[in-house]
Design a protein around this nucleic acid. Structure first.
Lengths: 132, 132
DNA sequence: TTATTAACGATAATTATTCCTAAAAATTTT
DNA sequence: AAAATTTTTAGGAATAATTATCGTTAATAA
C-alpha cells in the first residue's frame, strides 16, 4: 500500500479500521481488541490503542468521550448524533438527520468553531428492564 | 450541617460545591482539589472525587466527558451548551440559549430519552495563537 | 533486493479514579 | 451536654485505562 496518504497501512491498522467500520456499536478499545483478535490473534492491545488514536488523529474514526470510564470509537468519522445510555454508557447512532443548532458569532468566545456534537442521553431498553 | 434533601453537608462537601459554583471554567477533579485546598489545606483528593461523584449523582453538578483524558465538572447542573477546544480540551459555557434538536420517537431505538447535550468543537483563542 | 524507518509486540510506567479502614465530625438519643 | 450512632474524612493502597519504551519486524522507496 502506498504512502500517498502519508502513513503506512499495516495489516493491523487495516483490520482495525475495517472491523470498526463493520459495526455501529461504538466499541471501547478492548472491545476492538477482541474483534480484531479474531482475525489477528497475536495483535497487541497497545497496537489497538496506538492505531485508534492514530486513526482518530487522521480524522478516519471518531473518538467519543462521555462520563463513562472508557473512550469509545466510531468508524464513521462524519459528525452525527448519538444516543448514550446513562446507566451502561453504551452509545448508539441516531439514524436521522438532526438540525444542528447554529451558534451566533457573538457567543463563540473567540473560538473557531469547526463542528457541533449532539448527544441524546437516556436509558437503553436493556437497562430499563434490568432496573425492575 | 444538613440539608432538607436527605444528605449531610459537611464542610468539605460545602466548600467543593461553593468553589465549583464560583467558576465557569469546568475544572477537572485535580483542579477542584487545588481550588479547595486553598480553603481546606488538608482535604484529600479522594474526598474531592467522592464528593464530585456524589454531587453529580444528586444532580447538583454536571459531570462532563469528552475525548480528553480527565472528566470535567460544571457547577451549573442545568443542561446547557458548551464549547470544547479540540487542542487543549478546555470547556467553556455558551451563554445563549440554543434550540435543542428534538428526536422523533421512531429514532429513539427504544431508549427513554431524558435530555440532550450540545457541544460545539473548535479551537480556543489561546491555542490559535500558540499554533503560529 | 536492499535500505530506511514506521509500526509492531511485549511489557513497564503512568495517570486517573476508586476502594479500604481507622479516625474525626455530624447528628441523634439519652 | 455526654453518650451512642451514623456519616464522612484522610491517606494510602489498589485497580483500571491508557501511554511510553524498546528491541524486532515488515511496509515502502530506492
Amino acid at each position: 500500500m502506498s504512502t500517498e496518504m502519508g502513513f503506512r497501512l499495516s495489516k493491523q491498522r487495516k483490520v482495525i479500521l475495517e472491523e470498526l467500520r463493520k459495526v455501529t456499536s461504538h466499541p471501547t478499545a478492548d472491545e476492538v481488541y477482541d474483534m480484531v483478535r479474531e482475525i489477528i490473534p497475536r495483535i497487541s492491545l497497545g497496537t489497538v490503542y496506538r492505531n485508534l488514536e492514530f486513526l482518530s488523529s487522521q480524522g478516519l474514526v471518531l473518538k467519543l468521550g462521555g462520563p463513562g470510564t472508557q473512550k469509545r470509537f466510531d468508524g464513521n468519522p462524519k459528525p452525527h448524533p448519538h444516543i448514550r445510555c446513562s446507566v451502561c454508557s453504551k452509545i448508539e447512532d441516531v439514524m436521522c438527520e438532526v438540525d444542528v443548532p447554529a451558534l451566533p458569532e457573538e457567543y463563540t468566545r473567540g473560538f473557531d468553531i469547526h463542528n457541533c456534537n449532539v448527544e441524546f442521553v437516556g436509558i437503553c431498553p436493556k437497562c430499563k428492564t434490568e432496573m425492575q
